[in-house]
Design a binder for these strands. Structure first.
Lengths: 206, 206
DNA sequence: TTTTATCTTGTTTATTTGGTCAAGAAATTT
DNA sequence: AAATTTCTTGACCAAATAAACAAGATAAAA
């Protein structure tokens, strides 16, 4: 945005708008979302929403930016010193927490990718690609040291991403199948346990 | 649709429309999709598209129906007689093939779920829930017989769904990260190998 | 050939939508 | 308190859109 001074009201309104926009973009996609609908969800007149963000694309960019920030923080890190067991425990645990606590961020991200990543090709091409490279190297080291079985590190990364994010993106389906209305506190722990155990078993050197 | 006689032209046009619609719905979501755009992609006048399908929702329903049919066929089946090893080999293999050969179907489905499954709540509530129940029972039998480790069958189902579908839904991201333009024939085999091996290791009774 | 059913398409209509504008209210600064 | 900036909002507009319509072309059936 800009260097305008940011009063309390401004921040509060912007916050309301971004939260509303997130819901609207998830429900209807970028093109299907309407500024009017975002305004209604935020409880503000449309003209006021456009005062803060000027146009629909700006709103979307702001929502995406937040999403990527979240990806970035919540990700936990994979460091060589931890060794494969602890590193994967930490990583899976962080990703599962993310999925259960911020499913909307995950959904926005997933929709972007499915629709062709028009708005964040750059993020994938630079940041993400480098991240995968770095972590693959660490996994490869552990493999060379005989501390985990010999697999393509990238396959491991994908299976962790997919299996953890699934609980956010497919929330609706999972809850329907399990005939439940919402996730519960316990679920985070249960899923984390299962996934870490399962993945670690798959990596064990016999 | 109806009991009108279906000539060659009719079927051919319908086919073109549905393929175009699939692309349009993936790119822009249900609400963002326009009949005009579908018509353009199909190379037909808009009025002609509406002659065949009457309105946008009908087009979408037809696309979804095809998607579910595909889910249904391509799924391979899990039968008790196969035992865990063969059953999971078959199932994972079928799902991976699906993901690589029909990524668009997977994407449409994923978007529907992410957006709240408005149009296929019924499918999930009935068909899918029953499917999960049936297969869970089979897994539980194998567990009781000591042929695989003791886990919640539903967790296993979710990890297989997510890890296989990932290659379809996140195609764009995966290709970008790997700096490639398209998947190749080999990839299907490679991914199938990895996932079956990995999952079977995770299930092994030591 | 005649008749009927199917298909094609340009035109029109009513509604929705993104975005602007102007006029004023509220807060902040001088 | 005066001046200035920030915020709020109803009214407005041009473009896009879903859908209906009408009139004709083509193919199929009689």
């Amino acid at each position: 945005m800009t260097d305008k001074k940011q009063g309390k009201i401004r921040i509060h309104s912007q916050e309301k708008i971004l939260l509303a926009a997130q819901d609207e973009f998830i429900s209807n996609g970028y093109k299907g979302a309407t500024v009017q609908s975002i305004a209604d969800l935020a409880g503000l007149p449309k003209a006021n929403v456009l005062y803060y963000f000027k146009n629909k694309e700006n709103i979307y960019h702001a929502v995406l930016e937040r999403t990527l920030d979240m990806w970035d923080q919540g990700i936990g890190d994979i460091v060589y010193e931890d060794g494969p067991k602890v590193a994967i425990e930490k990583f899976v645990s962080a990703k599962v927490k993310m999925s259960f606590n911020h499913p909307k961020a995950s959904k926005i991200y997933a929709m972007e990718i499915i629709q062709g990543a028009q708005h964040l090709k750059e993020f994938a091409r630079t940041y993400l690609r480098q991240w995968v490279r770095d972590k693959s190297k660490i996994f490869q080291l552990w493999i060379d040291e005989g501390r985990m079985i010999n697999i393509e590190p990238i396959n491991l990364i994908f299976i962790i991403w997919s299996s953890t994010q699934h609980y956010a993106d497919f929330e609706t389906q999972i809850l329907t199948i399990m005939n439940r209305a919402d996730y519960e506190e316990d679920d985070i722990e249960q899923v984390t346990q299962f996934l870490t155990q399962f993945i670690l078993r798959g990596l064990e050197v016999k």
